[in-house]
Design a protein around this nucleic acid. Structure first.
Lengths: 239, 239
DNA sequence: CGGTTTCTTTATGGTTTCTTTACGGCGCGC
DNA sequence: GCGCGCCGTAAAGAAACCATAAAGAAACCG
């Protein structure tokens, strides 16, 4: 997850429609998870943080309206309703319960995509923070590109430095090979320029590590790669 | 803020539809102002602060799509489109230009009301009223578009400047990428004109920052974007 | 319609960030 | 304890990026 892509939960019993919608959303660079019935859909809705919920009202096991009501008890995520029912009363009911949009089947592919974009546009305005990495005194928000300590002091890192931390953080605690780092940070074709890594690792250490000569969080695996470990304590010193 | 204080601008040439919509909205405790053509509608849109714009695409004097595009240049207010055209291409075009919803005529009264409520719900969630930004000596009311200091002195900012601040404020403290800023301020298709950003950031800094050379609130993230930070102290470096 | 504000576009010089190269140290196998 | 590979460190040139000024174009307002 280089750029944390957005995640959509799709609750729909008809496999064919599921496939169509999934394909459309994936073309929009969206991650899609499917649920085929209300029960598993509701469970999935609870277990992750979604950027959008698309739900069919005509589910076999439960009423889609009830699911909307449930979801709205704890989440403000955008909800788009798909439905075979096109009666006005159905639309009004869904919208009043907290849905943000309502499409009657059959719907056009491009219209669906456009309305999904609108929903995400709205959601995008609610700014959220990403995962925090803790390195010594520093708390690093990789998505916001912000690095602060407990006292509120801030530290400036460059684009490449954040990128490197991002890749290391994807494999938190595990070693990332030179090759993998170079490819993910500098793109394919940079696989042999290990010198970059040395320069940037040093740079990061001198910015983040209290004692850059004895790193506790940005660790070297000689001849293999580098590794990021998290936590206030870091690996204990053994002198 | 009560519902009664919300104002809706209705741009629609058909007097009959105007009457119907006005009646429906007034039953919702909404204030309604009507415009019968595009030119006066656009003028009205500029001259007041609206909570919602409802616009017919089939205006005699101008293209409704162009009006949407214009309005989005300086305002993020919700826009609902009414249209006799029900072709998918029309819907997609309107939604992509920044409309939030699209109803084809004939539409049901209750559905219109429900969708209006959804639009206002979104607007209500957005930042809220009295979104004040404090930058140095200046207190900026983004919704009212007024800028004053403690002594009562006022400062004039242009539409684009306010819009830029608005977008930055939505992600207060976080980086907003060049691309995101350009798209949200200048519309889609302006993604490559970073020069705009440079010019306007400088303009804002020279108006707002006590020392524009050394910005404390409007910060640059080289090769990434810009960010707005709030607070009297400003950023503190510890490098 | 004419003056004024606002927006767009371009050129220049300064700053930050990236890349490249060189050198000394450390550890490991011989 | 010696050679070899790998690592950390430093620094300087190159490239990318940014702030600034200024002027022409467009939009706005009376």
């Amino acid at each position: 997850m280089t750029l944390a892509s957005r995640l959509v939960l799709l609750i729909e019993d008809d496999a064919q429609i599921r496939h169509v919608v999934r394909t459309l959303l994936q073309l929009e660079q969206l991650g899609v998870v499917e649920a085929a019935d209300g029960a598993s859909g509701l469970a999935a809705a609870r277990n992750h943080k979604w950027d959008l919920l698309i739900i069919d009202l005509g589910l076999p096991d439960s009423d889609g309206l009830q699911i909307i009501e449930q979801v709205r008890r704890w989440s403000a995520m955008p909800i788009i309703v798909l439905s075979a029912r096109s009666a006005e009363a159905d639309k009004v009911a869904a919208l009043e319960l907290g849905a943000d949009d309502y499409l009657s089947k059959p719907f056009g592919a491009r219209e669906l995509v456009a309305r999904v974009r609108v929903a995400l546009r709205h959601a995008g305005n609610r700014g959220g923070h990403g995962a925090l990495v803790q390195i010594g005194p520093w708390r690093i928000d990789l998505t916001a590109r912000r690095t602060q300590d407990a006292a509120g002091g801030s530290l400036h890192l460059t684009r490449t430095e954040y990128r490197l931390l991002e890749v290391l953080h994807q494999r938190l605690g595990l070693v990332v090979t030179h090759r993998a780092l170079l490819q993910q940070v500098w793109g394919p074709g940079s696989a042999e320029r290990i010198a970059y890594l040395r320069v940037y690792m040093r740079q990061l250490r001198s910015k983040l590590e209290p004692d850059p000569t004895r790193p506790r969080w940005l660790l070297t695996d000689t001849a293999v790669g580098y590794r990021l470990v998290q936590g206030e304590a870091g690996p204990s010193e053994s002198e």
